[in-house]
């Protein structure tokens, strides 16, 4: 219920931002592609947290799918939908103005965002904490909220056109390398790491899910960023 309510609130905020920006004569900054990205991103949240939830309790690979959907794919789509001026219209001005003055703005720095994202990734996969999260619903909610928050934070930087291609590719590479460490731990271990999930095969699959999802999301981003720079090279090579 909480998830549905949050999604409804987010949709209302996004819809009013689109309407406001269009009324100001800038439909190009709130076009249909933005709406499609937002719809896909917000739809993934209930899919991950409601549809997959029951299976996630008994299958680590499904639980990992939940995490990568809310922390990476949905986060990427949501940031893609609101990036640029539209983001300033999502929150009402009385909320946005004081927020911009708080130290929270320092979070949108690559090193800080990466450190938080990687720490979140590492900490929640410590078997003891993973087990606690499974036994206490509020800890589990906190875990999922942090996945989403730090995912949104990282993707805010990855999709920020004001940053150089190198900075964004470096962040993507660092995130992929960190993900690979976790992937390797899960795939290369022949005994169950989490008491609630006794299947080693599902544990290994969970690692592959993490790797495959990162290859798709971070790989697509990196390719999109590097593609314009590959053209001159191709011309020279030809």
């Amino acid at each position: 219920m909480t998830i549905v309510a949050l999604c409804v609130v987010a949709t209302i905020l996004f819809a009013q931002a689109v309407v406001r920006l269009r009324r100001r004569g800038r439909p190009d900054l709130a076009d249909w592609s933005r709406i499609a990205f937002f719809a896909a991103g917000i739809a993934l949240m209930p899919v991950a947290l409601i549809v997959l939830d029951e299976q996630a309790d008994s299958n680590l690979a499904v639980h990992m799918t939940q995490h990568v959907l809310i922390g990476d794919l949905a986060a990427a789509l949501l940031v893609l939908s609101v990036r640029g001026p539209l983001a300033l219209f999502v929150l009402p001005a009385p909320v946005l103005r004081p927020l911009a003055r708080t130290p929270l703005r320092k979070l949108v720095r690559p090193k800080v965002a990466y450190a938080l994202w990687a720490a979140n990734l590492g900490i929640w996969h410590v078997p003891w904490l993973y087990d606690v999260a499974l036994r206490h619903q509020w800890v589990h909610y906190t875990e999922h909220a942090l996945w989403t928050t730090f995912g949104l934070l990282a993707w805010t930087i990855l999709l920020d056109d004001r940053r150089t291609v190198g900075q964004r590719v470096a962040l993507a590479a660092a995130m992929f390398a960190s993900g690979q460490v976790l992937t390797d731990v899960l795939v290369f271990t022949f005994h169950p790491l989490y008491p609630a999930y006794p299947s080693v095969r599902q544990q290994q699959l969970a690692g592959v899910v993490m790797m495959a999802e990162q290859v798709v999301t971070l790989g697509a981003l990196t390719f999109a960023l590097l593609r314009p720079r590959l053209r001159p090279f191709r011309a020279v090579a030809a």
Binding site: T164, V165, G166, A173, A177, D184, V187
Partner: peptide, 27 residues
């Protein structure tokens, strides 16, 4: 398989890291 994947992960990530570093230097 673990050995093969582990070795390739290490070698490729080191090489990717080197070229990211060069990209940043160029910029």
């Amino acid at each position: 398989g673990i050995l093969m994947n582990g070795e390739q992960t290490l070698v490729f990530l080191l090489a990717i890291g080197f070229y990211v570093w060069r990209l940043l230097n160029e910029e």
